[in-house]
């Protein structure tokens, strides 16, 4: 018994040394989430909604941001953006269809809380590479705007608002195949987008969010459920995206519904 206890204690010590510390994040109640994101998001239900009149998709599953500190937005080259986003942070990152409240455990870079009393970052370069474990949660939300204000999503939930990767997933429901449409995304700043598991857009470089900044090649929205998945990355500044499907005349496609599952 004593030996077993010793082994258990030793194992605990080894684990404590080898594994990064966990960041304390409690799971918020939906009422707390709704209150924290007021003005930007409302809680989504289990049903379907139409895109807005301009085709923008407002219903999304959003994952708490994964910390990826950058003191500048000048790093978002194609390679950096791809490498940063394609790194696997949690199982099923590119395939899972989350439900509201689902938890994922990630190991991510540490960054101190933002001090809004100063206009400069409190990030200490000496912390570069310091890793922590974190519990992140998926949230089913409707954006109150044509855009998805990721910065306010993070700030409202007291997560890392600068230097972060934001994963977003939604389901496009079609009554029939819709061929030869294009995914249109604007984002501040970089990102990658997949439709039904196929990469359709890569946004590299430092840019503002503008409607229809990047438009994919032709894609088909197939009859039934289509999974649209995106990852947006930014350093300092505002993070947000807007997404819709457009036809070859640049006109919005609206004959589908959107749901979180």
């Amino acid at each position: 018994m004593k030996t077993s206890l010793r082994i258990l204690l030793l194992a605990s010590v080894i684990l404590a040394v080898l594994c990064p510390p966990a960041q304390a994040q409690k799971k918020l109640k939906n009422t707390e989430v709704a209150s924290a994101l007021k003005g930007y998001f409302t809680l989504a239900d289990n049903g379907v909604v139409s895109p807005d009149s301009e085709g923008f998709i407002r219903r999304w599953m959003l994952l708490d941001p994964i910390s990826k500190p950058n003191s500048t937005n000048q790093v978002f080259t194609i390679k950096y953006t791809r490498d940063a986003i394609l790194q696997e942070y949690f199982p099923g990152q590119f395939t899972m269809m989350p439900k509201d409240g689902d938890r994922v455990r990630v190991v991510m870079e540490y960054q101190p809380p933002v001090d809004v009393s100063t206009s400069y970052s409190t990030y200490d370069p000496n912390d570069a590479g310091k890793m922590i474990k974190a519990n992140l949660y998926w949230h089913a939300l409707d954006s109150d705007h044509f855009f998805v204000k990721l910065f306010r999503f993070a700030a409202g939930l007291d997560r890392d608002r600068y230097g972060a990767i934001f994963w977003s997933v939604t389901v496009i429901n079609c009554d029939e195949d819709i061929e030869d449409v294009r995914l249109s995304v604007g984002a501040n700043c970089g990102g990658m987008w997949w439709l039904n598991g196929e990469e359709v857009l890569l946004l590299a470089g430092d840019r503002h969010m503008g409607v229809d900044s990047f438009v994919s090649k032709h894609v088909t929205l197939k009859k039934g459920k289509n999974v649209l998945r995106g990852a947006t990355i930014n350093g300092i500044g505002m993070s947000e995206f807007c997404a819709r499907f457009v036809d070859d005349n640049g006109q919005p496609v609206t004959n589908f519904t959107v749901s979180c599952n």
Partner: peptide, 12 residues
Amino acid sequence: TFGGGLGGGHAN
């Protein structure tokens, strides 16, 4: 007054 929030607050 200031140069813009560079990772901090945006009081200006």
